[in-house]
Simulated scan of single mutants.
Amino acid sequence: MTLPVEWLRAALTPGIGPAGFLKLIQAFGDIAAAVSASPHQLEPLIGPAAARALKEKVSEPDVEAALAWASQPGCSLLTLLDADYPAQLAEAGAAPPLLFARGRRELLSRPMLAMVGSRNATPQGLGIARDFSAGLAESGYTVVSGLASGIDTAAHEGALGSAASTVAVIGTGIDRVYPSANRALAHRLAEEGLLLSEFPLGMQPLAENFPRRNRIIAGLARGCLVVEANVKSGSLITARLAAEAGREVLAIPGSIHNAQARGCHRLIKEGAKLVETVEDVLEEVGRLGPTRLRRRTPPSAAVPPTAVAMPELPDGLSDTAQRLLESMGYDPILADTLADRLGLTAGDVYAMLLELELAGLIAGLPGQRFQRLR
């Protein structure tokens, strides 16, 4: 359908936002009538500053830029007027009237599951996020996250290549990538998945943008899975928004010594479902029938849809190194603690830790601590 320019003009006017846009629709019946209304009629609904901006057409450069951008292959503008606007998002309250979409727009019709967590995730948390994401995508769920560092990145990486793939909702203009380290990932998402943004082109990563992004992530999904999060993490905002929208909230527990697990533990105390496997997640959000979507790229490794993949230990490890690995547990631990536990010298322990790290079995952490990965 042809997109009314008045719709774009109002959606991109600073200060109106989804709630103000809805007020205009409710008051005038359609957005064209609202755009033609007098400032006196508009001010009680959206305030004097936004009313003046709408009447002065301050969003006109953004409108022209949006139309030019949408003429490019793979780029489109999605509105509440479109038949493929996700029903769950439309019903979640204060739905964005306009979304910039780049990539596989057909993914919007798929059942989605949000996966979020800490930007400063542990190596173990990143591995769990990738494995769960791959398993959920193989089970038919499109994984939606926010393209942030840490758990978000791992969630997207795990689902890419599966038929159901992944959607990234970003807190900048869709022509920007934040963080810049995810530029290559964003390009893959534009080809194999989908990028979404409600912000005008060129929008910088402002702090106030990310709660709005989180609202969209929560609104799109049937449930929200938190992998790792500290108690001040923005992921808890997404989980709260999901709960308020009637979605399932799920959390993966961690060590009591891991600060990045405390947000998950708080969610579980407040009623979130504790999950340990992909099967646990599917029991809560529902199993899906066979998908008709084709796999876009061959998977790097097959991950069973009902469990986290746990690779076998490599051959060639010394007996002492295997014994050290078994004694580590999965909590971060000091090398000196391991030396005391096994009755070995610090030099011997560090030599074995290097062997295990080169084998990809452990990761070094700040403060001379180490953590087992598998």
Rank of each mutant, 00 (worst) to 15 (best):
A261H: 12
S38R: 13
A261S: 15
E43M: 07
A359E: 11
R215C: 11
I333L: 08
R102F: 08
T142N: 05
G316H: 00
L45C: 05
V5F: 00
L24S: 04
L344G: 01
R9G: 06
Q41W: 06
D30L: 01
D319R: 08
E64C: 09
L108N: 01
D30K: 03
Q41V: 00
K273W: 15
R52L: 15
E64Q: 15
P305E: 11
L356C: 08
R369D: 05
I362F: 00
V143G: 05
A163L: 03
R292L: 15
P111G: 02
A301N: 06
N230F: 06
I170G: 00
A321V: 01
F132I: 00
A251W: 12
A94P: 00
A259I: 06
E64A: 15
F28S: 12
D175H: 03
L344R: 03
Y85Q: 00
D319L: 13
L282Q: 12
A94R: 14
L77A: 02
R52V: 13
C75Q: 13
G146V: 11
N209D: 08
L358R: 11
A307L: 12
D348K: 04
L342G: 02
G254I: 06
G173Y: 10
L45T: 09
L354Y: 06
A50R: 09
N214A: 10
T122G: 00
L282D: 07
E283Q: 15
L8F: 13
D131C: 03
I174A: 08
D348H: 04
D131Q: 14
E138M: 09
F210V: 07
M203T: 15
F28N: 08
S162E: 14
L147R: 02
L250F: 10
A163E: 15
D340E: 14
C224I: 00
G202A: 01
E326L: 15
G343T: 07
A94L: 10
L81N: 03
N258Y: 05
V167R: 02
P4E: 08
S197I: 00
G364H: 04
L67T: 04
M115L: 10
L24V: 02
G17Q: 02
R294I: 13
E60D: 15
P298N: 09
L344I: 00
A218H: 08
T122M: 05
E91P: 05
C75H: 14
V63P: 12
P332D: 04
A33S: 14
V285F: 08
P18H: 12
G20S: 11
L361D: 09
S139V: 04
L45H: 02
L225R: 01
L358H: 09
D131G: 13
D280K: 00
Y330R: 08
E60P: 01
T172D: 14
A363T: 01
P73I: 12
A190T: 11
P73S: 04
I174N: 03
L12F: 11
V281S: 07
A129T: 05
V63W: 07
R188C: 09
A129D: 04
G343Y: 01
V35F: 01
P304M: 01
P86L: 05
R102V: 03
S180A: 15
R266W: 03
E138F: 10
L8R: 12
S300T: 14
I362N: 05
D175Y: 10
S133E: 07
D348F: 06
